[in-house]
C-alpha cells in the first residue's frame, strides 16, 4: 500500500468523483433531514429551522413511543425466529456433502434475489382467508373430523360446527410472518460462514471425550459460532426494524412500524420536520446496534470474527 503522496495525481483521480458524489447526493440530503428535524412547518411547504427539539419530544410521546417499542418487538421476534429456524438450516448445509453445499446455499439465497415487493405480495395469497394456510388447516380439520366420525364421536361436534378460518392477514401475525419470510436468508448466510470456518475436529474431540450431541452443540458449536450468530442477528434485526413494505402490505391499522409512520409524515400528513426527527431516531438506533456489534467483536478478536 502506498502513501497517497507518492502518486497524488492518481489519488485525486480515484478520489474526487466518488467522494464528491457521496457528499453531494448522500451526505447533504442526510444533513438536510437532520436540519429539518429541528425545524417547524411554515405553511404548506415552508420549513423554518428554529433548532427546536419539539419534534424529538413529540417522538417520545406515548403514541409514537409505542410504535417504536412495537417495531423493536417485531424485529426482535423476527430475529429470534430466524435464528431458531436458520441455525439448523445452516448446520444442515455445513454438514452436507461438499457437492451439495453450493446448490443448497444457492437455493437459500435465490428468494433473496427476488423482489421484496413480490415476495411480500406472494404471502397475501398464502395468508388470506381463502389462502393456503387456511385451506391447509381446513383440510386438516376435515381430516380430523372424519377420524372422529369414524370413531363414533362425530355428532358431538368436538371441533366446532364448521371450520373457522383464522384471521392470518392484515394483523401483527402477518407482519411477523412476512418479516421472517423475507429475512430468513439474511440469517442463514453468516451462520453458514461461521460454521463452515469452524474446525470440525473440535466437535469430534468433544464427542470423543464423552459429551452427548446436545452437549456438544451447546458447549462447543454455539460458542464457536457466536460471531456468526451475532452477525446474522444484526443483519436481520436492522433491516427488519426499518421495514416498510411488509407492514404496509400485510399489516392491519394497528400493526404500523416506524417506517410506515415516517412515510405518512412525508406523504399524507405532510409534517416533514416530525418525519425527519423520526428518521434520525431510527438511524441512531441502527448505529447504536452496529456499535454494539463492533464492541462485542472487538473483545473476541482472538476467536474468529464472522
Amino acid at each position: 500500500m502506498d502513501s497517497w503522496r507518492k502518486f497524488p495525481l492518481v489519488f485525486w483521480l480515484f478520489s474526487l468523483p466518488p467522494t464528491l458524489w457521496l457528499l453531494l447526493f448522500f451526505l447533504v440530503p442526510l444533513g438536510l433531514i437532520w436540519l429539518f428535524s429541528f425545524g417547524e412547518k411554515q405553511g404548506i411547504v415552508g420549513i423554518d429551522i428554529t433548532w427546536t427539539l419539539a419534534n424529538y419530544a413529540r417522538a417520545l410521546d406515548p403514541l409514537y413511543l409505542q410504535i417504536f417499542v412495537k417495531s423493536f418487538w417485531f424485529a426482535g421476534l423476527t430475529t429470534l425466529i430466524c435464528l431458531l429456524v436458520g441455525f439448523p438450516v445452516a448446520l444442515a448445509i455445513t454438514f452436507a456433502p461438499a457437492r451439495w453445499r453450493p446448490v443448497l446455499l444457492l437455493l437459500v439465497i435465490l428468494p433473496f434475489w427476488t423482489n421484496l415487493l413480490i415476495r411480500t405480495y406472494a404471502l397475501i395469497a398464502v395468508l388470506r382467508t381463502r389462502g393456503f394456510l387456511n385451506d391447509g388447516l381446513e383440510w386438516t380439520w376435515e381430516g380430523a373430523n372424519a377420524l372422529l366420525t369414524l370413531v363414533g364421536l362425530g355428532d358431538l361436534n368436538l371441533l366446532g360446527e364448521r371450520f373457522q378460518p383464522f384471521e392470518l392477514l392484515y394483523n401483527n401475525f402477518a407482519v411477523v410472518f412476512g418479516l421472517v419470510y423475507v429475512h430468513l436468508p439474511f440469517m442463514v448466510l453468516p451462520l453458514y460462514a461461521a460454521l463452515d470456518r469452524m474446525d470440525k475436529s473440535y466437535l469430534e474431540a468433544s464427542l470423543d471425550l464423552g459429551a452427548s450431541q446436545l452437549r456438544t452443540f451447546l458447549s462447543v458449536v454455539a460458542p464457536l459460532a457466536m460471531a456468526g450468530i451475532v452477525s446474522g442477528c444484526i443483519i436481520t434485526f436492522i433491516p427488519a426494524l426499518g421495514s416498510f413494505l411488509t407492514p404496509d402490505l400485510l399489516g392491519g391499522p394497528d400493526s404500523q412500524m416506524i417506517a410506515n409512520v415516517i412515510e405518512s409524515q412525508f406523504k399524507s400528513a405532510n409534517d416533514w420536520p416530525f418525519g425527519a426527527a423520526l428518521s434520525f431516531l431510527l438511524m441512531y438506533v441502527t448505529f447504536f446496534v452496529l456499535a454494539l456489534r463492533a464492541f462485542m467483536t472487538r473483545g473476541r478478536a482472538g476467536l474468529d470474527a464472522a
Binding site: 500500500m1 492518481v10 448522500f26 442526510l30 433531514i33
Partner: peptide
C-alpha cells in the same frame, strides 16, 4: 492502493449507504 489520513472514517462513510435504513435514505432524497 493508498494510505491516507482519515482512511477509517472514510471507509465508514462509504458503508453508510449500505447500512442506513432505506426509508431514511428515501426521505432524505
Amino acid at each position: 492502493r493508498f494510505r491516507f489520513p482519515g482512511k477509517a472514517p472514510y471507509e465508514g462513510a462509504m458503508t453508510l449507504p449500505i447500512v442506513i435504513p432505506e426509508i431514511c435514505m428515501g426521505v432524505a432524497m
